Computed example of a mutant assay.
Amino acid sequence: MGDLSDLRREYTHGGLTEADLPESPWPLFEKWMEQACEAKLEDPTAMVVATVDETGQPYQRIVLLKRFDEKGFVFYTNLGSRKAKHLETNPKISLLFPWHTLDRQVAVVGRVEQLTNTEVLKYFVTRPWESQIAAWVSKQSSRISARQVLESKFMEIKSKFSKGEVPLPSFWGGYRIVPESIEYWQGGEHRLHDRFLYTREQPFSGDWQVERLAP
Rank of each mutant, 00 (worst) to 15 (best):
R111G: 03
S152I: 02
Q114G: 08
A135G: 09
S142G: 08
V108I: 14
E119C: 07
V149R: 01
T116S: 13
K153E: 15
S145L: 12
F124H: 00
Q132H: 08
S145D: 11
I144R: 09
I144W: 08
T118R: 15
A134P: 07
V120Q: 03
L150M: 15
A146E: 12
S152M: 10
E113P: 00
L121E: 14
V109G: 12
V137Y: 04
K122L: 09
E119N: 14
R111M: 07
Q132I: 04
S145Q: 09
T118H: 10
T126E: 04
R127D: 04
V112N: 04
V112A: 08
P128A: 01
N117W: 15
L115D: 06
W136C: 03
R147L: 07
P128N: 00
E151L: 11
V125W: 02
R143E: 14
W129C: 02
F124Q: 00
E130D: 05
V125S: 09
V108H: 01
L121M: 04
Y123L: 07
S131D: 10
V108S: 11
V109M: 12
V149Y: 05
Q114S: 15
L150P: 07
V120L: 01
L150E: 11
S131W: 06
E119T: 05
Q148N: 11
T116G: 01
A134W: 08
Y123E: 13
S141W: 11
R143N: 07
A146V: 06
V120R: 00
E130P: 11
V125F: 07
Q140I: 03
P128C: 03
W129Y: 15
L121V: 06
Q132Y: 06
R127V: 02
Q114Y: 11
W136Q: 09
S138E: 06
P128L: 02
L150D: 03
V108K: 01
V109C: 15
L115W: 06
N117E: 14
E130F: 05
R143K: 15
A135T: 10
P128H: 06
Q114K: 15
K153S: 10
F124W: 00
G110E: 03
P128W: 02
V125L: 05
K122E: 15
L150S: 00
S138K: 10
V109S: 11
V137D: 12
T118W: 11
F124C: 00
W129P: 04
V112C: 13
L121W: 10
A146Y: 00
Q148K: 14
K139H: 15
N117I: 10
A135N: 00
K122N: 08
S152Y: 13
W136P: 00
L150C: 13
S131V: 10
L121N: 11
Q148G: 14
Y123T: 11
G110Y: 05
E119L: 05
A134C: 02
G110H: 00
G110T: 03
I133Q: 04
E151H: 04
S145R: 10
S141F: 09
S142C: 09
V120P: 04
L115P: 07
Q114A: 14
V120M: 00
K139D: 13
W129V: 15
